[in-house]
Computed example of a mutant assay.
Amino acid sequence: MLLAIDVGNTNVVFALFDGREMRARWRIATDPRRTGDEYAVWLMQLLAIRKVDPKEVERVIIATVVPRALHNLEILCRHYFDVEPLIAGQGSAEYGIEIDVDQPRSLGADRAINAIAAHEKYPGDLIVIDFGTATTFDVVDFNGTYKGGIIAPGINLSLDALVGNTAKLPRIAIRAPESRSVIGRNTEDQMLIGVFWGYVATMEGLIARMRAEIGRPAKVIATGGLAVLFDEATDIFDAVDADLTLEGLAILAERAALK
């Protein structure tokens, strides 16, 4: 089996694959100081709950946008699985796609992997939106070439900035407003409208501009934790694919094994 590890700025997600089938998925807060032993104590218990022997994990692939977290995850793989992990974008796990931007090496691993997975799963020109700590909009053309994109503050970052830089505004939870009215009758509703519907309007406006610039029909694929929440509020998504990044890691590992 394959263990895929996706290290984001907020969470580290571990997924267990049998071929292309995802058997399990677990999430832990990102902390670059967490040691390989600490990961092992947590992960071995979760494997035991699923009745998976660690010896069944024959391959590991890691993608990270937090470089400081990589060393301890490599220790986890070597000491507890006796596996040398593949690192997305390096060696036999090179992306294998054309990255048509000014600084190709600056592209985050998660965005490159999303491009790989989206191109394999969906035909034609694509715009991939990933709702994470930041929200990214990535353009992948019909040949699978990464053409560039947009980085915007994630909705939780926007809310943190609003609350953290004002004296009286309360902290609220991100959710879909109960009404589609954009005229709030109290402070909490007005904040939620500003953050939620403001974000929807931003997405719709940016996607309209991106589609116009691409000049061809482009499907919009949404991924990340908040994709389902926004899918209920807009019709701009052609597909919501929550596991796109993890599936991309499985695809990349599969290609690496054939080299």
Rank of each mutant, 00 (worst) to 15 (best):
S158Q: 15
G124N: 02
C77I: 13
F81M: 10
I129E: 00
G108H: 10
E58R: 12
G89Y: 04
A208Y: 06
V220T: 07
K147L: 10
I97M: 03
F142V: 14
T10N: 14
I127C: 07
A15S: 15
I236T: 09
R68G: 15
A112V: 03
P67N: 04
G148D: 09
Y199L: 06
L43H: 03
T223E: 01
I87Y: 10
A69H: 02
L43N: 05
R255S: 08
E232W: 09
K55E: 15
A250V: 11
V41P: 12
E38H: 12
A109D: 14
M22L: 03
P32L: 05
A256S: 09
L249S: 07
G224R: 05
I49R: 14
T135M: 04
S181E: 10
G132A: 02
F137P: 10
D231I: 00
I49L: 11
G215K: 13
S179M: 09
N72D: 13
A115F: 01
D82H: 15
G184M: 08
E213L: 07
L162S: 12
K168F: 05
I61M: 08
R105V: 02
T30L: 01
Y95L: 12
R171S: 12
G96M: 04
S92W: 12
A134K: 10
H71W: 15
L107I: 07
P104R: 01
A69L: 06
G224I: 10
R27F: 03
P67A: 10
G164V: 09
D100N: 06
L76Q: 04
R111G: 12
A173T: 08
E21V: 02
P104S: 10
A201G: 13
I61A: 08
M210W: 04
F17L: 01
T30D: 11
L159C: 10
R111T: 00
E204N: 09
G91P: 14
L157H: 13
G248Y: 11
F142P: 15
E98L: 13
A227N: 06
R175V: 09
N11G: 03
L229H: 12
I174W: 07
E213N: 11
G19D: 08
P217W: 00
N72I: 00
A40R: 04
E247C: 07
L244T: 00
I5G: 05
G225K: 00
P217T: 00
I221M: 13
V7M: 11
R175I: 06
T145K: 14
E38S: 12
P104L: 04
D241Y: 01
L159G: 02
R211F: 06
D241N: 09
Y39Q: 10
D130A: 05
Q45W: 08
L47T: 11
R171Y: 14
V200T: 12
V128E: 04
R180V: 05
N186K: 01
V128Q: 05
T35I: 03
I151P: 13
A88F: 11
